[in-house]
Nucleic acid binder design. Structure first.
Lengths: 121, 121, 121, 121
DNA sequence: GTGGTCTAGACCACT
DNA sequence: GTGGTCTAGACCACG
């Protein structure tokens, strides 16, 4: 897991996104214990406060929970995670279709485009 | 042309995007004169300076040019505009594929997804 | 004589510069009659008022004079013109040396540069 | 670093030029942190927004970059800076030769002129 | 009436 | 304390 940030958006937002991906894709498996805040912060080269803020977001999204004095754990609720994945997929696809429409590509053209890319892979 | 802004990103950036779309999709045709800065600002309900900043970006992108004391005009370079459209399409598609990969959808799943949407239309 | 303007500076200033050059280099010879304002304006594709303004500057510089009802004439004072040429040369050279110094080229490096260009001609 | 402005050209343009020179000549060394926008503005006696605009230009030229909430830094890309210096030199020399040609000095006369100045130093 | 510049002053998010 | 954004309002040159 690499932590590369751009300077355009708040770091903690980017951390949230990256950590969500890590959970959804199973890099941090269901029910597993996360590295300590200090460790993660060190690794991501950010201020621990910033990482704390990011984890706070994940927690209010129920993707992780805190066991006092023990650490933070990934939720064990696989349905929740599946739901997140589905929602993200929907959002991504909708945005994609929308963006393409905006610049003048209709559904048919989009399908062509996607097909083409597949063939060139 | 409607000007609705979200609060997440700078207004002038959103203006740039909207104006680029308007040019690329031909709402502001090749070589045509844009409404005056003041008019556009009035219409978009932003400060003229904000709009000026947005137009400055378009100008440094060569999508528009200024005739002193006369007004601002859309470039007449149709190739340039086509290039912009192509680039935007490529960026959008790449981001899409990339985002989908990140949340665990491979190319085949993406194609399914796209197909499904077409059928539900 | 071509009239190409950039949009960065006032047109009349650019006209003044071009006309001065035309006089200094003899394209409009000593004592000769200038084309009418209307003609010049038509040719340069500028508003006659703009050209009038430019000619006003030349006149206050004594490079041209007006014969009422008859037209405008280039001065016959060859010394004056020589003086203008010398002054312009001095200004140009001083600015050049100065600019080069500013970006870190000393006199010796400048001479090298000039020599090199001569050889590549 | 002194900030003296003439009234002929926009302040922010002059700021851009001065700051570029400062970077190219190493007054602001590679990778070093610039004074804060507010400080520089105070020092140059201009409005912070004006300075911001100038720095924006430098940034889009990649001569500086911004670390959010931290400050602005000179690029560490020494090749880029060298390239800028070279380009500036070329432009200055070309403009010089061109200007001299325009007022009737050919290459030989220019060399004389340059030589003369050297001797009078 | 057109674009361009500049100032003063305010507010914001981030670290 | 850092940069970033935005507004309001003013003034200017140009044609």
């Amino acid at each position: 897991m690499e932590f590369n940030f751009d300077n355009e958006r708040p770091i903690y937002i980017q951390l949230v996104e990256m950590l969500k991906l890590a959970i959804i894709t199973g890099k941090y498996p269901l029910g597993s214990r996360l590295p300590s805040v200090r460790e993660l912060a060190l690794y991501a080269k950010v201020n621990p406060n910033t990482l704390q803020k990011a984890l706070g977001e994940l927690e209010s999204d129920k993707l992780i929970y805190t066991e006092r004095t023990n650490g933070k754990y990934v939720t064990s609720d696989s349905k929740l995670i599946k739901k997140y994945q589905d929602n993200m997929a929907k959002e991504i696809v909708n945005k994609f279709i929308n963006d393409m429409n905006n610049i003048g590509y209709d559904y048919k053209m989009i399908k062509e485009y996607i097909k083409e890319i597949g063939e060139n892979k």
